[in-house]
Write a protein that binds this DNA or RNA. Structure first.
Lengths: 368, 368
DNA sequence: TTTTAGCACTCTTTTTTGCCAAGTGCTAAA
DNA sequence: TTTAGCACTTGGCAAAAAAGAGTGCTAAAA
């Protein structure tokens, strides 16, 4: 390496470094003109071309073809890594965060879901997902309402600790006034800010009814229905916000020709990575529903997921729904196999209850 | 559904089912000719075409374009799932296996490695991997040797419990005879079958030397060197076989234009999924080496991984190497960032030792 | 009445062709 | 030693042409 350093003039090093860094940034061959214009190298393109020709001869650069710019060769990268790369700083402010992330512990249920997802993906050879609802971890800090028209309004919810602001349009079967809506906002903030999903009960709702009636002076009917349809939306939102979704085997998508089209693949993957859409799609399913659900193509699903099928089932442990597991793949998936896998998995999981799952006894860790 | 069933003649159902199943298998539009020839439908293609036209009118089939075959519509899939799909059997012989997989527990070290891999991938936006050596879990059931020429022979190792058979060619700096090699085989089976990596010690090797000398009657030198080079290969193989490798963030590859070429992407992903090649590439690295290793392009690496760089570092916990962590990405990766991430991670992990990692009070499985 | 063979037609896919832009290497001048 | 200028090469792209696949329809056969 020090041998290399002696051989290369400072100008060659400068140019080589510039080329490598430009190429790292752009991912494309770098031409002489680009270096003078964008990388502020104070030589003419001709001079740079000469230097580049020599660097190529020395093995540090390559040409994909005659009329392309240069790209670094492996030797070029090696030289860059060994002597040109700017010293990086080991200490960042995230170091503390890092420690937390590293020693992150999962709950027993999360582990079961994780394992189930992995197994499901491995057995079916499609992408698997698991949903873990945790709505009680979510509270709404502040509510706003916006009157849209006499039969609909918008709730804006600002959750505690989460960045996202959630809005939901509520359509009614009866007529309301802007005053009703602003009264509703007062009642919501008074009663539901800082309350989690478990805190919403009949008692609270009745009290909200009374307050709202007092504020708008209207009849029982309207106040009651306004409160109940609003609370329903809030409930749904908390469910959405409090859900965690995990995917396993995303790369298996690649095997199917429907995703050979890079556009579709990208779309699918970004849908998956966004998570939000999928959470919305699956978290509306009744949690106490025991059937296996099949969403084919656009049926009820997120628009982007046309051409894909989602098969989905709630998982029970000790009689309680702990989450759900699903398989995503092309519409033309092997339904028979997927259905049987999901059924088997959910059955085996429900059997886990008595054994080592929740009670967890004393010696937690026993290496398989 | 039962409505649908009444409307469709048996022949239509037969054809619809055949089309859907053919499409599920092939992923391409299905033409009338294919059905007669490959799916054994006993009508002429013209008849089938007529039926297909009607099925299309009813909404069960679609044409991507005039001159393509038919594909099932969403309604078609729905009908298939609801009434045509063959009953799947919930009980398979794997049910027992399943239970094991589901309640699979990870050791503390595995968790740390897992978390580290996730964090590394998230921070760098490349694919991360972790290697967990566990050679002591491996034993060789049976050894065979094959004489190649006077300076090399082949060891064939049949491991316990693993399907793979491993072969390794051993090159020597001295001359041997076929008889030497067959004697070696006897000694190996006598002393090393069922022994794991921890069981190989000086004492055992000396005893093997003595036995071999007795069998071939040659001088000290040859017996000793033959045993030592053989044991070295066996040692390496056990290391390879006993290593587990995990990947995280494979889909991040998609973001980089070098993998926009689906061929390259496929190659890369299948390399990753094969695992073997990568294990071989990284498990030869000296385990006690503390430096960050950088493999650029074809340097020392698996052939298929041209155009990609692997950055790799051993992780220590309580002064002991517990595994390794790495990043895979295009050659033009952001070296500075990756290097700093890996260094930070390894540093944080080594700091974990005093805290919650190993001591973990009573309930720890003693990990290796 | 139902089924089948045959053929014209449509639309996609693949191949071919020609052109343009990008970037180089070289020569001659500064 | 550096720079300007120009001929040359080559990949990428778009339009045009050719090839292939499968349909729908008509008319004959069962």
């Amino acid at each position: 390496m020090s041998f290399d350093e002696q051989i290369l003039s400072d100008r060659k090093k400068l140019i080589l470094k510039a080329i490598i860094e430009a190429h790292i940034k752009l991912g494309e061959p770098v031409g002489s003109k680009y270096l003078t214009q964008e990388m502020d190298i104070a030589y003419s393109s001709a001079t740079i071309r000469n230097e580049m020709a020599e660097l190529e001869e020395l093995g540090y650069l390559e040409k994909p073809h005659t009329s392309a710019g240069r790209i670094p060769s492996e030797l070029g990268y090696r030289f860059y890594v060994d002597s040109l790369v700017s010293q990086y700083d080991t200490k960042t402010k995230e170091a503390g965060e890092l420690k937390k992330l590293l020693s992150f512990k999962m709950s027993e249920i999360d582990k079961i879901l994780d394992n189930a997802t992995k197994v499901a993906s491995a057995m079916t050879n499609y992408t698997a997902l698991s949903l873990r609802p945790r709505p009680s971890s979510i509270t709404i800090k502040k509510y706003e309402t916006v009157y849209i028209d006499s039969r609909s309004y918008l709730i804006i919810m600002i959750p505690q600790g989460v960045e996202a602001v959630k809005t939901k349009r509520v359509n009614l079967s009866f007529e309301i006034t802007p005053e009703d809506v602003s009264a509703l906002s007062k009642v919501l903030n008074l009663n539901l800010s800082g309350v989690n999903v478990d805190g919403i009960n009949i008692h609270l709702m009745m009290s909200m009814n009374a307050q709202l009636k007092e504020l708008i002076g209207s009849d029982d009917q309207i106040a009651e229905e306004l409160v109940s349809s609003t609370v329903k939306s809030i409930y749904e939102t908390m469910n959405e916000l409090g859900s965690e979704i995990k995917f396993e085997g995303v790369n298996r998508l690649l095997e199917y020709p429907e995703y050979k089209n890079l556009d579709k693949l990208q779309k699918m993957i970004s849908t998956i990575e966004n998570k939000e859409d999928i959470i919305r799609a699956v978290s509306t399913i009744d949690q106490s529903d025991d059937d296996t659900k099949i969403f084919i193509g656009s049926e009820n699903m997120v628009k982007i997921m046309d051409d894909s099928t989602l098969i989905y089932k709630n998982l029970k442990l000790n009689g309680k729904t702990i989450g759900a597991i699903g398989i995503i793949g092309p519409c033309r998936m092997d339904y028979s196999k997927v259905l049987s896998t999901i059924d088997q998995l959910s059955e085996e999981i429900s059997k886990l209850s008595d054994l080592n799952a929740l009670p967890s006894a004393k010696n937690e860790e026993s290496d398989e």
